[in-house]
């Protein structure tokens, strides 16, 4: 596409099969083409088991695709479960990427501490994961992802395990946090409303083997309101695409 802004992430006809211990390999993705520009939030929605998590792992270079090509900058994964380290305080969990990058404990903590106040986590620095609610744990996990400093964030159903009220809160929190800390994000979710609320573009995946069946541009002003008529219309449109694919 001549003249188009540069793509930070692009997948061309990517296919991937999980090697099976017995029998034929399981085809997880086939002919997936996606792209995301710098600073964009790309949401990928699809039914359970359509290979969404595999897609993120491919982007994070945890696997090599069987077919097609992936051009991606260094990417960091935020897995579905928060995977916070139980023996570290919230502050030290957030500081973990800096420790791994070679910073000393004091320096890493100082950098992590700066983030806490900005995102409504002040006062929870010394709490251990077991003492935090599900929403709080996801916030800590997201800060850890953010502090890693990589240009591309891969979020795997970050709010999937939360109750509806907390999830709504967290979606607004994520939107606000990303408005301040602009990053390129690939967000995998099965929640169409979440996708439309947060994303610049929504890619709809088919059931396994996943492939992109539709791409919906979300050109709504931010901050977005989930009761907004235009948002509802887009959600119905995307749900229709998903449903027609489920029957096919």
């Amino acid at each position: 596409m001549p003249g188009a802004p540069e793509q930070l992430l692009s997948l061309q006809s990517v296919g991937f099969a999980h090697p099976a211990r017995r029998g034929a390999p399981v085809q997880a993705l086939s002919e997936v083409s996606l792209h995301a520009r710098t600073g964009e939030l790309l949401a990928v929605v699809g039914p359970s088991g359509c290979g969404k998590s595999t897609l993120l792992e491919l982007i994070c270079a945890l696997h090599t695709p069987d077919q097609g090509t992936i051009t991606a900058p260094p990417a960091v994964l935020m897995p579905q479960r928060d995977l916070l380290l139980a023996w570290l305080s919230a502050l030290d969990n957030v500081a973990l990427p800096l420790r791994i990058a070679g910073l000393g404990r004091a320096q890493a903590r100082a950098r992590a501490r700066e983030l806490f106040g900005e995102v409504g986590l002040d006062g929870f620095q010394q709490a251990h994961p077991a003492e935090l609610s599900g929403g709080m744990r996801q916030r800590v996990a997201f800060l850890r992802t953010l502090l890693c400093g990589k240009p591309l964030l891969c979020l795997d159903e970050p709010f999937g395990a939360l109750d509806a009220i907390t999830r709504a809160e967290m979606q607004e929190w994520l939107a606000a946090t990303l408005a301040r800390e602009r990053r390129t994000v690939v967000l995998v979710t099965h929640d169409v409303e979440e996708a439309i609320l947060l994303a610049d573009r929504v890619a709809v995946l088919s059931p396994r083997p996943g492939r992109v069946v539709a791409s919906v541009e979300v050109e709504l002003e931010r901050p977005r309101n989930r009761t907004d008529a235009a948002l509802s219309a887009l959600r119905e449109h995307a749900l229709g695409l998903l449903a027609s694919e489920g029957q096919a």
Binding site: C60, L62, P79, L85, L96, P97
Partner: peptide
């Protein structure tokens, strides 16, 4: 899942051992 996360945080084998496996 922990090793996957640590790999995307660029942890070396030793760091994965020291930060995750050993305390666990």
């Amino acid at each position: 899942e922990q090793p996957k996360l640590l790999r995307t945080l660029d942890a070396s084998r030793w760091q994965a051992f020291r930060f995750a496996e050993l305390p666990a």
